[in-house]
Design a protein around this nucleic acid. Structure first.
Ligand SMILES: [Mn+2]
Ligand SMILES: [Mn+2]
Ligand SMILES: [Zn+2]
Ligand SMILES: [Zn+2]
Lengths: 127, 127
DNA sequence: GAATTAAATGCAAACAATTCGCGTTTTGTG
DNA sequence: CACAAAACGCGAATTGTTTGCATTTAATTC
């Protein structure tokens, strides 16, 4: 039998799609209808292997767990180091870089992760 | 008393500087003169807070631990999904993006992490 | 549509990475 | 040298993640 895209797994994709922001496993577990944590982990592993979701880690003190987000629309994220919010931004200008990497290093890029750390508008105003 | 850059901490910086590639805590612990693992963790936390080293996580099956690298020269990394090697590449074209992010989102970027996943030259040849 | 079979799930236990508490040692300051 | 603060080592605790296994669910074949 083939690995399957179960209803629960679809539900996770919808959840991530709806938010449009990275969520960690705990948040996903709490937001998705009741299920075991290990089921969530297995679902995410499956979805990531299918290219339906992607994951990132954030080099910020706020949380040292993995974050998952929908692969539906390829995005980059801004992460505010003060309030720890994520802001999605469209991907732009990467094709050129990947071309250069292929030319210069003969490394063929299949995926990239770009994360910007800094201060969001709100936090810049507040301090 | 002020937090201190001890000899051991300097040694870690030199180690990371010398390698020019991200190392995980276990590798660092093994490479650095004998010391407790918790001392390594505290040293890295200190060095990161001082901006002397940076860390990334890699969305690859090979290892789910944090990687540290010298902040000396700001680099990006290519990570081969087959042999799991890292290749450093110089940072280029990011200033423009950060300017655009400030203009479009009023988010001021202090740091960015850019990682490319894919296949290195060697692995492309071998399969 | 019942039998067959492989994968998914829940639950508990195992692991691995990281953090914490605390007694001891080191180092900077006066 | 005396004192205070930080670093260190060591063990225990915590947290994020994985695994084993019995049970349930669902696709496939008859
Ligand atoms: Mn992108
Ligand atoms: Mn860069
Ligand atoms: Zn903010
Ligand atoms: Zn390779």
């Amino acid at each position: 039998m083939r690995k399957r895209l179960t209803d629960f797994r679809k539900e996770l994709v919808d959840l991530l799609d709806g938010r449009g922001l990275p969520l960690n496993v705990k948040e996903i577990h709490e937001s998705a209808g009741d299920s075991d944590l290990s089921t969530v982990y297995r679902a995410l592993e499956y979805l990531e292997s299918q290219g339906m979701v992607r994951s990132i880690f954030v080099p910020c003190s706020c949380d040292r767990s993995k974050y998952y987000y929908s692969a539906g629309k390829h995005l980059h994220f801004l992460h505010c180091e003060r309030c720890h919010s994520f802001y999605p931004v469209p991907c732009a200008g990467m094709k050129k870089m990947e071309k250069k990497i292929l030319d210069d290093y003969r490394f063929s890029v299949t995926e990239h992760v770009l994360l910007f750390m800094g201060r969001c508008e709100k936090c810049r105003a507040e301090s």
